[in-house]
Write a protein that binds this DNA or RNA. Structure first.
Lengths: 118, 118
DNA sequence: CAGTATCCAAAGGGATACTG
DNA sequence: CAGTATCCCTTTGGATACTG
């Protein structure tokens, strides 16, 4: 039978793994900005996101969107227009990130005060 | 005077910048794991963190800790022992990350279910 | 113990051009 | 429009050895 210290360590490891899982998905250079852009506008096209996220290249946007799709954060829909248009939106799962994004927003504002000093 | 759309866009940009500020601090490969390690044990020495964070090298740990210190997330204290010992702990500001870490933990667990599928 | 220094391979990512 | 392909420089970070 485990003693208390061992139990706590196991719990701790589980939590660290879970946090790491989240960061693996979110810590790419542009991930959060892309998610925010799509979230804010609800539905968003490739070229629109390209404009929203200052500094990103089409290569990077393409790559990051693919990863977000694999992780079921965003859904990609090809619209039958001429020329074709592609719409990105958050999945139900992606929408659950709003809490975290809000937390990060609040913390970022506070952090700026602490580090830059008001 | 700004119209509503412009105002929303400005707000949106501010928020995206704030989120990005947070991610700049937290998105390093090992940052969250290091913060979690220190947080969990309250005070933690260099070599202990080196053991907690599976796979990290001393070079990386040193670099990441420096950045966390600059960002006032951790406090570094040299203890007058023989040989010297260095203790790391979270600052008051660093402790405010607990909410985010908890959210990320919860989301990570849920995410694993969604992507891996139970 | 708590780092620093150096070497070097691999990955990241910008610029540009091209395709369906 | 929504990407892909290629070139190529920059950054990252592991391995190893060394220092106060």
């Amino acid at each position: 039978m485990k003693n208390c210290a061992e139990f706590q360590t196991d719990e701790h490891k589980k939590k660290m793994m879970a946090v790491q899982d989240s960061m693996d998905v979110l810590s790419g250079k542009w991930k959060i900005a892309i998610i925010s852009s799509i979230c804010y506008y609800n539905k968003r096209r490739f070229s629109d996101i390209l404009n929203d996220v200052v500094g990103i290249s089409n290569k990077m946007l393409s790559k990051e969107l693919k990863e977000l799709e694999i992780n079921k954060i965003v859904k990609r829909t090809v619209l039958d227009t001429q020329p074709i248009t592609v719409q990105y939106e958050l999945t139900q799962h992606g929408l659950t990130l709003r809490t975290i994004i809000n937390n990060l927003t609040d913390w970022g504002l506070e952090h700026r005060k602490v580090v830059v000093g008001r």
